[in-house]
């Protein structure tokens, strides 16, 4: 699994999207999709300055399930906060987290995960990439948030991308 050629992965997922969008396996669409996706992949290759090198497919799948579980759990947590008392609602704030992840694609995925999970929003990375600022809706236990982000999301991402 080491070093997937990312262009192939990109082409394959684009092809999958094309067939899904047309909802068909008709031979004409399959050929057209193949031609289009290869053309798009070659045409945009120059616009992607660096290639992602994801490995460890199983770690990625495990991370996906962890994130879906967290999204479901924190949906109800945030719903509780919104419906709760004024005191619970005005408990938000910014916090800083030290970062070890360096790969830009890994950071992009981490940004998507943090923002997609209700209750936390990615608010920026410092210029040297060592400190991450996030905004948290329920900021009671900063340590717990640092632990969640570092062990649940950052560790697997470092495994996948570095």
């Amino acid at each position: 699994m080491k070093g997937w050629p990312s262009l192939t992965l990109f082409t394959a997922s684009l092809y999958g999207f094309w067939l899904l969008l047309n909802d068909t396996f008709a031979p004409g669409q399959m050929v057209l999709g193949l031609v289009l996706t290869i053309a798009v992949a070659l045409g945009t290759a120059a616009m992607r300055p660096l290639r992602a090198r994801p490995h460890h497919l199983f770690a990625a799948i495990r991370l996906l399930f962890v994130v879906v579980g967290d999204i479901i759990r924190s949906n109800f947590a945030v719903a509780g906060i919104i419906l709760g008392s004024v005191k619970r609602r005005s408990n938000s704030g910014f916090m800083k987290i030290p970062m070890d992840l360096r790969d830009p694609y890994g950071l992009a995925v981490l940004a998507c995960i943090i923002t997609a999970v209700p209750g936390t929003v990615w608010a920026g990375l410092s210029a040297d990439g060592r400190a991450l600022t996030i905004h948290v809706l329920d900021l009671q236990d900063e340590e717990a948030w640092v632990r969640t982000i570092k062990y649940r999301y950052e560790r697997p991402l470092m495994e996948i991308f570095e």
Partner: peptide, 18 residues
């Protein structure tokens, strides 16, 4: 219901995800 802009961002995430 949420008091300021930064906490209001968390509201629509509920509809966007689950």
């Amino acid at each position: 219901r949420l008091p300021d802009l930064f906490s209001r961002i968390h509201g629509p995430t509920l509809g966007n995800t689950l």
